[in-house]
Amino acid sequence: MLQVTVAGLKLENPLMLASGILDQNGYTMKRILESGAAAVVTKSIGSEPRDGYLPPVIYPIEGGLLNAVGLSNPGIDNIGGEIKIALSAGKPVIGSIFGSTPDEFLKLAISMEEYGVSAVELNLSCPHVQGYGTEVGSDPVLVRNIVKNLKGSLRIPVFSKLSPNVNSVLEIARAASDSDALVLINTVKGMAIDIVAKRPVLSNIYGGLSGSAIKSVGLRYVYEVKREMDIDIIGVGGIENYQDALEYIMAGSKALQIGTALGKFGKSIFYRISTELAEYLSKNNIRSVMDLVGAAQI
């Protein structure tokens, strides 16, 4: 009833762990899979190890979190062991990668494929690091080339995670249309100031806003892209309960990612939402959650 197929990937339920949350240590990813997530997406991995920014890098605000972690990651050569540990849970692991050129993305993706991931997710959307993320993901020509380059060389599906911090999400979505799925959306660029210290709280000044505060923004892009394009969409942004999940599914998402809500509700959120979704489907005599994908499109 809860099984979905997205980008050709079979998932036991529509819920995955979003990239950037509890996903650098293999044992943590394994535990999240054992807590009911159908898949996990790793922290975004680049070519070299990066420490990221000086803390504070994460700051809770009303309705969510601001973060500017700064793409801290152990580098592609050091992530294989963690993925191996996560894979021992017997569920799909998706490798998130970030680069600045088509060749760099390809190199990272090939390593991820060798490590045994079920798909790669391209981080075209981190809002707070120069030369990566949104800076790459706001250039439609570059996005098209990155995706094309990967699609010709990989056996596993390619997800493109897009940013809302661009002039036209639809334009970038079209540029990434060779992807097997689009992941909508990454965080919304923002900041916070401490009025006593009289300075920005995040050491990077700007960060990305996630959590319930951005749910309506995410929904809008899922809905808009689904209306214009025939492509699988994975919805992410502020999902905290089964009603949020249903909104994203009815807007056009085949699968969902959850991240920030883990800080508020813990790892049991995957089990809770999938149980609630199953109850909803039974109560309403709906055979499969897939029947609801895009149901709200008018």
């Binding site: 949350i21 509890l22 943590t28």
Partner: peptide, 14 residues
């Protein structure tokens, strides 16, 4: 890095 259980920096066996 966070204190609220999301960054995975302080994790031990998950």
């Amino acid at each position: 890095k966070c204190g609220i259980g999301i960054c995975d920096s302080c994790s031990i066996d998950g």
